[in-house]
Every structure is written in structure tokens, then in C-alpha cells.
Nucleic acid binder design. Structure first.
Lengths: 138, 138
DNA sequence: TATTGTTATACTCTATAACTATA
DNA sequence: TATAGTTATAGAGTATAACAATA
């Protein structure tokens, strides 16, 4: 019973990831990079590396190559925090802003495709149940 | 809206995988190996490599290292299919059977821990909704 | 010619440990 | 001494391409 639930979660997550991969590929981004770009774009004021790690729930070391890729692609700039020279601020470039809009649309399409079989009420139900499992307020 | 759903699925799946990893570690298995062991143990008659790949929804090439690990651990034996010498049959050893029982209990515990916040009715609801998304009969 | 499985290789995501610069 | 980030390294999971053996 619980086992089957677990397998279903795994399956849906797998499909989701695959859908993202296919849609982000043409944008030159992996799902992880797209996710980081989104976090950086939504942040105000600019994020530091540790904060991004927290948001993505990965260790700071694992953030480095992700930001490296975004920086090489010209989407994000690293800036030294004037207030604390140990810290790095992550600033979106104009190209980054444009790409982010495309990422957002790609995400929307992938999620829409996957969850299109559900009615709005069912989606809300699913969202509520998963929120409970995630331990956030439903 | 759909985006948030997607993020929730991702988070729950991540927790699930982490829970499995912690519990399978002492058994000397990665989550992927445990999953393959389960498929092999449940199969009757014995699976061939391609069939296992199909069940796990990965390409045959990716099955090879998983089965390598299970065979090195003495849990599974590769046998040439007498009916088709190109094929490899995957046979569980007695140790494999024992380990599989432990894996099953570990899985059960991990899933129970994660979904314990839900009532039985809510679990059934969640299972039903995810089944719809997975495109199987709810 | 098609199928089964493997060798070789590579990429994504994530982790731990040790180090540098700064506080 | 503690914090922010990096270099170095590793392991899990997955993929494509080329190939051998068999059908």
C-alpha cells in the first residue's frame, strides 16, 4: 500500500524530470540549472551562494558548478558583496532575464502536459496532499 | 499553479529517495539495486535483461552495472537461457531471497515514515490521483 | 538483417573533505 | 575561531554509440 504510493511518486517525478529535460535542452540548460536560474531570478535582493544552496536544498559545494554553467552561458554574474567580501552575490544579466522567461514557459508547458489529465479540483487536492507530506502548511 | 505541483512532487520524491538510501545503505544496496532486486524477486518465470530494463524503464545498457553489483554481492545469478542463447536469465540466490525480505521491510518503513502524516483515506486519495497522472487505471 | 547484451564513454546531480580568503 | 566559497574527488543514475554473439 505505502509501497505502491512510493512507486507512483517516483514514476511521476521521473516523467516530470524527463519532460523538463526535453524542453530545457533547446534552451541550453539542464533541469538543475533551470531551477537555479529561477531561484536567482525570483530573488530580491540578490542571493548569495549559501542562500541558493539552502533554497535548492543541496550543499554549497554542489551549487558551484551550477552557477559556473550559468555564468559561462552569460545568464548570471558573480559579484562580490560589498558588505561582506567573503560573500558572492548572484545577479541576473539581461540575457538571463530573457532566458528565464523562456524557462518559465517551458516549465509551464511540461507541467501542464503532465497534469492535464486532472481537473482543477483534483490538482488542488493533489497539491494539498503533497503539501502535507512535505510538511508545509497545506 | 502547475509549477508548484511539480515542485512538490519533486520534493516528496527527493525525500523518498533519501529515506531509501539511508535504510538500504546498511543492507549494502543502493536504491536502484534494491529496486532491481525487487523486480527480479517478484518475477516468475525469471526475467531476462531486456525485460528488467523495461520494468525499470531504463535502457538495457544501464541495467548491466546494476546486475553486476547484485551478482558480485551474491544475490543474483546470471544464467544463459537454454531456449535462446543470446538471452540472460536472472535468478535469485537464497541469499538474494533473504536480502529481498529485508529490503521489503526497509521500503515499508521508509514509506510509512514519509506518509505517516496522511490518514488511510488521504493515502488512498493520493494514490488515486497519482495513478491518474501515471496514466494507469486509478 | 534483427535482437541481446556488453565494452567504452560521458553527463547530471549530489556528497564529503580539505583549503583559501575574509570576518 | 567561524563563515563563504572553492578545488579535488567520488559515487549513483542514466544515456548514446559501436560491437560480438546469436537468431
Amino acid at each position: 500500500m505505502e509501497t505502491e504510493l512510493a512507486e507512483l511518486v517516483r514514476g511521476v517525478s521521473h516523467r516530470l524530470r524527463r519532460g523538463y529535460g526535453e524542453r530545457f535542452g533547446p534552451l541550453g540548460l539542464t533541469p538543475g540549472q533551470a531551477r537555479a536560474l529561477r531561484a536567482i531570478a525570483d530573488a530580491e535582493p540578490p542571493l548569495r551562494m549559501v542562500q541558493l544552496a539552502d533554497l535548492l536544498r543541496i550543499v554549497p559545494r554542489s551549487v558551484t558548478p551550477v552557477v559556473d554553467a550559468l555564468e559561462e552561458a552569460g545568464l548570471v554574474r558573480r559579484e562580490v558583496d560589498p558588505a561582506n567580501r567573503r560573500s558572492t552575490l548572484l545577479v541576473l544579466t539581461p540575457e538571463g532575464r530573457t532566458r528565464y522567461e523562456q524557462v518559465r514557459e517551458a516549465r509551464r508547458q511540461a507541467a501542464e502536459e503532465l497534469f492535464s489529465v486532472l481537473t482543477p479540483e483534483q490538482r488542488e487536492q493533489l497539491r494539498s496532499l503533497l503539501s502535507l507530506v512535505e510538511g508545509r502548511s497545506a
